[in-house]
């Protein structure tokens, strides 16, 4: 059968069949190796590649809605693309397409083989290829947002896939969740406490939840968000723009929230907090 009869598949309608997609030499940093490889090789060098921003968090906290909010807030000034990682369906991609916040072609769904955390952590290949396709098909893009399939508190993005990541919780999930910690809550670039408008209905003290989160994060950024609260949306918007500016100037370094949250080791001297981010942190032999 001649290749000319081949049409693009239903799952990738905007891919041009036969279009070169694996350039042998490609000046864009990270186009083949991902942010991790470039952050070490091209540290502090300005880049024009799109910022890849991950959005993770448990099922139902409003990740897709948060992405729609970002698209609404920044769609007029930034060139955006979105990749979703649904577990069972392309529900999230369809939700975002139907939200009308972005051209439908700029929203792609990636299957994860029932392993949403694998697709963002230990084998990011499918998402990297999708990001490269999106960046090629709509070049140049400023921001590619990658939504993880809703998982649990342990799922975080690998710096090999994203340059920065947002971890999302919501007040309806319980005011105590921020205290439970975990790599995403503790060490994502930004923690969003979502749906603050629901707090009165679910008996959650937002200020307390944000304070717990800030304590767990050693004062890394936290935004208490409601899509109906313009001030909070403006706060989110300026965070994204700050990271993008820092990324473009070459100052931003992708951080790994790690599989482990910073944790306390008791010893005869009283103990110490151990964060796993220093080189060689895993060389020691104590049991966790």
């Amino acid at each position: 059968m001649p290749e000319s009869l081949v049409s693009a598949s239903a799952t990738a309608p905007t891919t041009v069949p036969g279009a070169p997609s694996e350039p042998a030499t490609d000046a864009r940093p990270g186009s083949s190796a991902g942010p991790l490889a470039t952050s070490s090789a091209d540290a502090a060098r300005p880049t024009s590649r799109a910022l890849r921003l991950g959005v993770a968090g448990p099922v139902g906290v409003g990740k897709s809605s948060l992405i729609a909010t970002i698209c609404r807030a920044l769609g007029a000034e930034l060139r955006l693309g979105v990749i979703t990682n649904d577990i069972y369906t392309d529900e999230d991609a369809r939700f975002l397409r139907s939200a009308g916040v972005l051209e439908p072609e700029r929203i792609r769904a990636v299957e994860t083989g029932a392993c949403p955390h694998t697709a963002i952590r230990d084998d990011v290949t499918a998402n990297l290829l999708a990001a490269e396709d999106l960046e090629r098909d709509f070049a140049p893009l400023d921001l590619v947002i990658i939504e993880s399939g809703g998982d649990n508190l342990t799922a975080t993005f690998s710096p090999a896939l994203v340059d920065a990541q947002i971890f999302v919780l919501d007040v309806a999930g319980g005011g105590d969740v921020a205290r439970k910690g975990g790599p995403g809550i503790g060490r994502a670039d930004l923690l969003v406490v979502n749906k603050t408008d629901l707090a009165p209905y679910v008996g959650v003290d937002v200020a307390r939840m944000v304070a717990d989160a800030s304590a767990a994060r050693e004062n890394r950024a936290v935004v208490a968000l409601s899509r109906t609260d313009d001030a909070s949306v403006a706060e989110l918007r300026s965070w994204v723009l700050d990271v993008l500016g820092s990324f473009r100037s070459g100052a931003h370094v992708a951080q790994d929230p790690g599989p482990m949250a910073p944790h306390f080791h008791a010893d005869e001297d009283g103990g110490y907090v151990h964060s796993h981010d220093e080189p060689g942190a895993h060389d020691h032999d104590h049991a966790h």
Partner: peptide, 29 residues
């Protein structure tokens, strides 16, 4: 061409090419 002629479904060829890209990333590294 011979492979494509023996794999008439575009869905299967697309999936095989996606896997091929993953393999190629690995192979060239």
């Amino acid at each position: 061409g011979a492979w494509a002629a023996r794999t008439p479904a575009p869905a299967l060829r697309d999936a095989a090419r996606l896997l091929g890209r993953g393999y190629l990333r690995l192979a060239r590294a």
